Every structure is written in C-alpha cells, then in structure tokens.
Amino acid sequence: MNPDVEADIKDLSATLASIEAVMDLASLRAQVAELEEAAARPDLWDDQEQAQRVTSQLSHKQGELRRVVALRDRLDDLSVLYELAEDEGDEGSLAEADTEHRKLRDEISSLEVRTLLSGEYDERNALVTIRAEAGGIDAADFAEMLLRMYSRWAERHGYPVDVFDTSYAEEAGIKSATFRITAPYAYGTLSVEQGTHRLVRISPFDNQGRRQTSFAGVEVVPVVEQTDHVDIDEKDLRVDVYRSSGPGGQGVNTTDSAVRLTHIPTGIVVSCQNERSQLQNKATAMAVLQAKLLERQRQEEQARMDALKDSGSSWGNQMRSYVLHPYQMVKDLRTEHEVGNPSAVLDGEIDDFLEAGIRWRKQQG
C-alpha cells in the first residue's frame, strides 16, 4: 500500500477512536437499550408528548450508534480494498478505494465536528429569526434570500422546517421570519450563524444600477422543552390579535386568528399566524416567547461568566459577507473561511461554513 495512504488511514483511525471515546459507545448502547424498553411499553401512547419524545430520542440515539459503528467497519475494510486492488493491479478497483477513502475522510471530519457540540442546549432543535436591517428594499430581499438559504440547507439534509411567522415587506422580500428546524444538534450547529450578514451587489431595485450594501440579522435560540423553567406571568403579557396577511399586505384570513405577544418587562415581541386557530397561534407564539426568554437567561449567565473571566465577547456582530459585485465571494469574517460561489451558498451549501464556525468557537473557548 502507498505509504501516504497507509499513514492517512492510521490518522483517520486515531481520529475515529477519539470520537468513539467522546461519544462513549458503551453508554450510548445502554441508552438505546433503555429507550427501546420504554418504547415497547404497552401504555407508551397514553401520554402522546412523552411517547413522541421517547421515539424521537430512540431514533436519534440509534442513528448515532449506527453511524459511528458503520464508519469503523468501513475504515477497517478500506485497507483490504487497497490491498486487493494492488494485488490484482486493477485501476478501477484502486479508483473505487480512493473514492471510499475520500468519503470516509469527509464523514469522519463531519462527525468530529459533532463531538465539539457539548453545550447545554446544543442537542436541541433550533428556532431561527431573520430580520431585515439597514438597506431598505435590498435588505428585505436579502432577508428572504437567507430564509431560502436555511430552508434549502434543511431540505438537503432531510430536516423539517416549520415557519411560524412571516412579516412581508411592502415592495419585495420580508421584514422578518421565524421558523423552527427539527434536527439532531440543530441549535448547536446553527448557533454559529447568529449575527449580522452583509450583502454587496448591484441592486435590482435601483434604476441606475448602483452597487448596494444591505444587512440582515440572524438570531438562533434553542427550542424549549418541558423540563425548562421559564415562568411567564400573564400580567407581564400583552396579547394582540389580528388578521393574517400575505405578500404585499394581501389578506389571507378573514378572521382575527393571528396572535402577537409582547413581554412587557423585556420588550420581546413574537407573533404567529400560520396555525388555523387563534388558540393554536397563541400556543405556538408562547413557545417561541419561552425560547427567546430562555436564551436571554443563558446570555445573561454567559455575560456574568465573561465578566468574571474579564474577557469580553469574542464574537463580532458582523459575521459573514456575501459579495456578488464587483467579484463573487462569500467570506466568514471570524473564521476567514471563504468560497467563490455565492449562488451555491445561497442555495443552502453552508456545511463548510458551519463546520468552520463550530471549530473556531471551540478554539475561542
């Protein structure tokens, strides 16, 4: 076997061994067995929410275990593939081994990033809010481009996206949108996207074809669970109901079913218009408000810790630039990761940026 190939396979094996140690496969197998036992109970579906939580956790843990076990089996087989290809002098088999080698390197690297997600809420689903900032119509259009980018990323991975609220701008694009992405470690993965995104392009809304810089903000919080303690006093809430609207202010509902909640002590405002009834919209809006209050608590705790360590925030607010003119480039301003294909990034190809962000954040810690 080629010495370089042999050395790389040894490095991959060592990396996978460290991943297996972090994941604690014995503990993971015990958790799977415990969840399988819980899922087999005859009274499981007497409590629908608990049943969904058990089956979801079981599916996730089984998937994690299968993934790492399969990687180890494939890596063990890779050396045999190379030896057989070399013994037979078969160029086709050698090319096949090289392809499998590249795939394993990418998949092990991706799994290694997952092991870096060890925050308290990293395993949870993500609640994402995008807001148009400075830049007028272009900013609203850019906010809608980012909504599509995250939706396409989720679609590529088979992750469900639930849009809770969309506030459309008058001429084009959106003022804001709030949506949930349901996936293992969605919050930990997407939390590195938080901050201000910047777009530079020739404005399609400028008759003189001038270059325009616009901004959109991305907020990412973990979805609350029943075990979280987020008490909201009804006296601290203002509840407004209104009719749902579509693009351009077009009415899409003839009843006042949309709900807006204002948390008076903090000034946090959330709304939901996508459910069928006012009661459902209020329940969804309350869940969004709880998630935002939970994240506020987490940030306050983090600020106190940072103050104790005497180390200010290591995050700059502006985190990524998307340049479409006079050249083509997307660059992360924290990690320095950049690519020359903005259209692919805006179509959801952001995994490299997410991995770079996660690695960067771990280094800062």
Rank of each mutant, 00 (worst) to 15 (best):
Y121N: 08
H101A: 10
V252I: 14
E338M: 04
V68K: 11
S244M: 02
K309E: 15
H229K: 14
G158H: 11
H325V: 02
D231S: 14
Y322Q: 06
D228K: 08
R359D: 01
E34W: 04
Y82S: 03
E301K: 15
L346Q: 06
Q250S: 13
D162K: 13
S271R: 07
D87G: 00
V224W: 04
N253R: 14
E34H: 08
E338R: 10
P42Y: 09
F205N: 00
S110W: 11
I358C: 12
L44D: 06
E338H: 11
I202F: 10
R53G: 06
G92E: 15
A177P: 01
V69R: 12
V113A: 09
A14Q: 15
A140K: 02
T115W: 01
E295S: 10
D138N: 07
A283S: 14
P3E: 13
E133V: 09
N281A: 06
V32T: 11
A177M: 03
G158C: 08
G357C: 08
Q52P: 03
V218S: 06
M1V: 13
E295R: 07
E301L: 14
D352I: 06
I19Q: 06
K10M: 02
G267A: 09
S257R: 06
V128H: 07
D351Q: 12
V200P: 11
I19C: 07
K103N: 13
E37W: 08
E123V: 01
R359S: 03
S93M: 15
L84T: 12
R320H: 04
R304M: 11
G63H: 14
S277Q: 06
A143D: 09
K282I: 01
Q212K: 09
G316Y: 03
L293E: 06
Q278W: 10
Q62W: 00
G119S: 14
K235N: 14
V32Q: 12
N253S: 14
S13L: 02
E219S: 13
E20V: 00
M319K: 15
P326R: 05
W45P: 00
G92Y: 00
E300D: 10
E112G: 05
T182S: 15
R276K: 14
A85V: 06
L75A: 08
S167M: 12
D4Y: 08
A303G: 01
E144C: 01
E88P: 05
L294M: 10
Q50A: 14
Q208H: 10
D306C: 01
E86P: 05
M305D: 15
L75T: 05
M1A: 14
P222V: 09
